[in-house]
Amino acid sequence: MIRIETELNILPANNGDSILIKTYDKNRNEVIILIDGGTPTTFKYSLKKHLKEIAKIDLLVLTHIDNDHIGGLKNFFKNGLIEKIEIGEIWYNQPDAEFYESRSEKAIISVPQAEDWKALIKEKKNGVAIKEITTENRIINIKDLEFTILSPTSEIINKLYKAWLKKRNKPIEKAIKSQISICKPSFSKSLEELNKIDFKPEKSIDNDIYNSSSIAFLLRCPDLSLLLLADSRAEVIIDNLKNMDYSESTPVEVDFVKVSHHGSLNNTSQDLLSLIKSNNYIISTNGGTSKHKHPSRETIARIVCKKNRNDDILNIYTNYSLDRIKLRIGEFIADEDLKNGNWNIEHKNTFTKNDL
């Protein structure tokens, strides 16, 4: 199929991520990239209808093994549609361990989900190359597309594998159904005030090893540049951008940024944003769960008030309507916020160069 422009689709994935990119090589031949599958229901209600129109996925990326990223991929591989779609290669960091069947379809912890998907790959797509991806790869070229790997480091992956192998034989935790919180917190501080608060993540990298292991990268397509941060840690991305000689005065320039970890306040720092030049930021979330709500108002503040912004309007996009997100987390954005800073926030799922 011939394609003349890149199409970035941030699919509705509940509180997770599922990204479908339709781009092209130098001969205008279509190249398809699927990044994550969202929660288990994402496949049925969102991803499936897109995949019905696709004959080949050139690259399938599971950024990390949390349920809101792997769940939809598991259901994809269990569906008959998997037999009709060719897969070029899979990026998926996993330890070299024996396959075994998950003991509970309701498990929500990461490791049993991942082991189950490993078995499904072996059953449905045996022979497809599965590649371990770390920052040691640095730059990867696939069909004229350039991927610059920014996370995870080899050190983080080694720690992930130790945690994985330690956890895989423990009893499965019971799933807990998340309820929408009826508590609607007040947001008394202005965005300017919130941006002045120092970035202090709640967990260290080692204590957040699954998110820290996220595969995050800069993707340069023929007509678009995308910074896709999965659920990566700001500290890791900062180190790698600086190692590439990016700085506040010479930031990396991209058309769109997929903000890390659904806009959590623990993954997007002021220092990270100072290394990025973009006017378009995308947050993938329906508002989260009663325990983990996002996007945080702090993250919005850091994006809007970043110190090296230009004078152009800054756009923040959500893949669910603002009204739906507010039902879960409250009035995280008020009309008063939009009066300062020359910025806009709106719901949008599909992006092309015409949106720039």
Rank of each mutant, 00 (worst) to 15 (best):
A334G: 07
H347G: 11
I10T: 07
S204H: 01
G37W: 00
N137Y: 03
S213D: 12
R3F: 10
K242M: 05
N340A: 11
D17I: 04
K124T: 06
I282C: 09
A301I: 05
E123R: 12
S214F: 03
P152V: 03
Q113W: 13
D25N: 07
Y161Q: 12
S190M: 00
R302F: 06
S18E: 03
H262I: 02
D68F: 10
Q179M: 07
D206E: 15
K49Y: 02
K106Q: 15
E123K: 15
Y317I: 01
K174L: 15
K203R: 13
Y45F: 06
M1G: 13
I65H: 09
E132Y: 02
F147P: 12
S269M: 08
K122D: 13
W117Q: 01
N9I: 10
K291S: 15
I10A: 10
N310A: 02
L34I: 04
N14I: 08
K258G: 13
K242P: 09
L73I: 07
P222L: 06
H50V: 06
K291N: 15
N75A: 09
G37A: 00
I209G: 10
H50G: 09
K74A: 14
N243Y: 00
H262P: 06
L160V: 11
E5W: 04
L322Q: 06
N93L: 05
L191P: 07
S232G: 01
K162N: 14
L47V: 11
C221E: 02
E155L: 14
Y45W: 04
D17Y: 03
S278H: 03
I313E: 13
V304G: 08
S186G: 08
I149G: 13
P152L: 02
I149W: 10
T268F: 05
T6P: 12
L226W: 15
G37D: 00
N169D: 14
K174W: 08
I21W: 08
G37F: 00
I238F: 04
